[in-house]
């Protein structure tokens, strides 16, 4: 009995020693000088490609900027950074709801640039259905408040950046009507921020014009339908297909990090309906794929959902 225990102790100690030896072996692996030089070359190449892309983006932006500057001059005779209450109405978009540029803010110096257009939804007071009108008023007010909060925070960050001289920063905010049909009104709020490198976040707001209420994902489907599983499994299939077809595409799926993998959408997942009436699911940068994949969207074909769509 005693011998057995001793032997077990001995075995344990030996295994610890071996583990330490493995560690030593592991730590011995180093890149050679030549391999390091190659790595350096790859790094330089990546930086050069980044630089070229930045220059290209700057040129394109420059061209757009010229047109925008003329417009800005009309609205703001003063070029100093200030907030203009423009109340300039854009062309009519949908009968019941309008997207109106409410304020615009432009700022540019050597290190900083902002092109911010803050739009608001205006509910026209033309509905004969009192309940629908009430809902419309409520939905638009709610969405406007959300936009206010989001943009105020981004603008404040930008202004602090300018004031504290924290280096290059760019901020672009704009909105765009994605779909305006008799049934739905969807617009996109796009926020792009960059500090020599940038990221974009897109928010989508959809109003169901028949009720005047904000459309939630679940509203699209018949009562009790398991739309979450249907959509999730379609997206997973697409992720796998795209990864098989294109080496450059990576999604978090079937990876070794199960907890990090895309599992399922939720009732709060960002979505919109495109001009074909198809559901489009939107994932922000880093949500279901490495950050370099950017914002990724999946259009769900109508066949996939035909049995459960309302």
């Amino acid at each position: 009995m005693e011998d057995y225990r001793l032997e077990k102790e001995h075995g344990k100690a030996r295994r610890e020693e071996e583990f330490k030896a493995l560690k030593a072996g592991y730590l011995k692996q180093k890149m050679s000088q030549e391999q390091l030089r190659n790595l350096q070359l790859v790094i330089n190449q990546a930086k050069e490609e980044n630089r070229r892309e930045r220059n290209k983006a700057r040129q394109i932006k420059g061209a757009v900027g010229a047109a925008a500057a003329i417009l800005a001059f009309v609205i703001l005779p003063n070029t100093s950074p200030k907030v203009a209450y423009a109340m300039e109405q854009l062309p009519l978009v949908g009968e019941l709801v309008k997207l109106v540029t409410f304020r615009s803010y432009e700022y540019e110096d050597e290190m900083h640039e902002a092109q911010v257009e803050i739009s608001k939804l205006v509910a026209e007071q033309i509905s004969k259905d009192g309940r629908q009108q009430k809902n419309l008023n409520k939905s638009t007010a709610e969405i406007n408040e959300e936009i206010d909060k989001l943009t105020a925070q981004l603008l404040e960050d930008f202004q602090i950046h300018v004031r504290e001289e924290l280096g290059y920063k760019e901020l672009i905010i704009n909105s765009e009507v994605i779909v305006s049909t008799p049934e739905y009104f969807t617009f996109k709020l796009s926020c792009y921020q960059s500090e020599a490198s940038g990221y974009e976040t897109n928010y989508y707001y959809t109003i169901d014009l028949s009720t005047g209420k904000r459309l939630k994902l679940g509203d699209l489907f018949v009562e009790g339908a398991d739309y979450i599983s249907e959509i999730s499994s379609y997206i997973k299939e697409q992720m796998q297909r795209q990864m098989a077809e294109n080496q450059g595409k990576i999604y978090w799926i079937n990876s070794e990090f199960e907890d990090m993998d895309f599992q399922t959408i939720t009732g709060d997942t960002t979505f919109y309906l495109n001009e074909k009436g198809n559901l489009v699911i939107v994932f922000q940068e880093g949500e279901v794929a490495p950050m370099y994949m950017g914002i990724v969207v999946f259009e769900i074909p109508s066949e996939v959902l035909e049995n459960i769509r309302k």
């Binding site: 790595l39 020599a196 990221y199 950050m291 370099y292």
Partner: peptide, 21 residues
């Protein structure tokens, strides 16, 4: 292969540097 992995990873990280939040 180990070198390839490090090089590819470094390249991707740098090219995607603008997406780091």
């Amino acid at each position: 292969d180990a070198c390839d992995i490090v090089q590819n990873g470094a390249y991707k990280a740098l090219r995607a540097s603008h997406t780091l939040r």
